[in-house]
Design a protein around this nucleic acid. Sequence first.
DNA 1: ACCTGAACACCGTTCAAGT
DNA 2: ACCTGAACACCGTTCAAGT
Lengths: 196, 196
Amino acid sequence: MADRPYHHGDLRAALIASAERALAERGPSALSLRELAREAGVSHAAPGRHFKDKQALLDALALTGFDRLTGRLEHALDTAEDTGARTRVLALARTYVGFAIDSAALLDLMYARKHDSRASPQLSSAVERLLDTVVRPIIDGQAGGEIAGDDPGPVAATVSAALHGFASLNAATSPEKVEESLAEVVRVLFEGLAPR
Amino acid sequence: MADRPYHHGDLRAALIASAERALAERGPSALSLRELAREAGVSHAAPGRHFKDKQALLDALALTGFDRLTGRLEHALDTAEDTGARTRVLALARTYVGFAIDSAALLDLMYARKHDSRASPQLSSAVERLLDTVVRPIIDGQAGGEIAGDDPGPVAATVSAALHGFASLNAATSPEKVEESLAEVVRVLFEGLAPR
DNA sequence: ACCTGAACACCGTTCAAGT
DNA sequence: ACCTGAACACCGTTCAAGT
């Protein structure tokens, strides 16, 4: 191994990890650069070497959040590969909501950064990858005749809205209650409000 | 009129209004009690008379947001009173999304406070009133046979998730684009993903 | 290259004191 | 009752200087 480059090797990564912990444990308003520096055992000015300002650290944290969430969604879809469209959408929903429950503050941060017009291009492309993942089972479902229509756009807009909204509204609910309620929501999404 | 009670009459209301403006114009991180006090022409310690701390001011602001949003939704429903269930849900959706677009930062604050377990009981009851408003056209629609099922719960969960998620995801989109996309989402909600 | 230490201009909150 | 002014313990950011 090379000599440790002064500090323990990767202050940048240590700050991001530490920020995520602080965010989850004490909320966004308690997230202070100086405290993160203290935890890492460096001076309060050291983070300035790795992040232009506090917002840049938050952007980097949001980015890791999007990447992790997308990775989990892709894995969930792969695992449910040979099942029906409804089962795949439910797998997607479960994974998304699971993330929202155990990383509620991080998800808030991710979307707060997404709303910001000054967001980084890296962040925008991470969001695109996320949306692509949601669209995939819909395209497949339409191709296989399990989902109505041939334009995935409106269906994807509806599913991602329901998914994100449900996750956001239920981030503070207990996992057991959420599970049942989520299955009902997916059922209503497939059956539709109009009587059949 | 009585003598002005020192300052211009209602520092509390002035601070809330000023906070909403600052939130919309410069974002949540730029919201400082000292600056609000400066704008109101009082000392930096004066807000402490009306709000125990900064969080208390944010709670009060979130509360006015929920009240205003609920008021608008009720008005939209009243206006669409004699139309079909789908038109009423669309009216609800338009109003909700309109609020999300022109008060994006406020809506974020409202839900951030809602997630907080230390939220005030007043805030919880304001959220309940909001949900009741969303449920009403669903109950009516089920009673009239325009919406399937007899338990409003799952349908309300789906509609409010889709509504809130769509609003959250499209808070930064132009109103014209949103209008078209929203109508499609309501159509998909009524028709369902499964082929008919 | 990476970090330190001091400095600057801000914060939120508290509390005696004023009117 | 409502507000002020000073004080305290924090911030984020910058910048010369150190290794």
